[in-house]
C-alpha cells in the first residue's frame, strides 16, 4: 500500500517535487526559474532543496555559465519513485 511521504508532504516541497518530476528524467531545471515559477524566495527555496537533497530525492548541479554561477536541479530516480508513491497514497485517500 502506498504511503504518504512526510518529506514530500510539506506544501513547498510538494510543489518543488511536482515541478521537477514534471520534467523528463535527466532534464535539469534552473534554480531561478523554479523559484520564480513557485513564487518562493531564494532562501526559502534553498532550505527546502537542502532537505530534499539530503533525502536523496533531488540532485543539485552547480556550474558556471559566462563566469556566473548557475544551479540546476533534477529529481533522482529515488525521488521520482517516492513522489509516485506519495501521489498514489493521495489518490487512495481520495477514493476511501
Amino acid at each position: 500500500m502506498a504511503e504518504i511521504d512526510p518529506i514530500i508532504h510539506a506544501p513547498a516541497r510538494l510543489r518543488i517535487m511536482s515541478a521537477l518530476v514534471a520534467l523528463q528524467p535527466r532534464i535539469q531545471l534552473d534554480f531561478r526559474t523554479l523559484g520564480n515559477t513557485l513564487n518562493l524566495t531564494d532562501g526559502n527555496l534553498g532550505a527546502h532543496l537542502q532537505t530534499l537533497e539530503e533525502a536523496g530525492y533531488i540532485k543539485v548541479d552547480k556550474s558556471f555559465v559566462d563566469r556566473k554561477p548557475r544551479t540546476h536541479l533534477s529529481a533522482t530516480t529515488r525521488g521520482r519513485a517516492r513522489f509516485e508513491d506519495h501521489v498514489a497514497a493521495l489518490r487512495e485517500i481520495c477514493r476511501v
Binding site: 508532504h9 506544501p11 510538494l14 510543489r15 511536482s18 515541478a19 518530476v21 514534471a22 520534467l23 531545471l29 526559474t33 523554479l34 515559477t37 513557485l38 501521489v87 493521495l90 489518490r91 481520495c94
Partner: peptide, 12 residues
Amino acid sequence: ALEEIDRVGIQV
C-alpha cells in the same frame, strides 16, 4: 494536493 501537483506541472 493532487490539484496542486497538476497545476505546478502545467506551470513549470
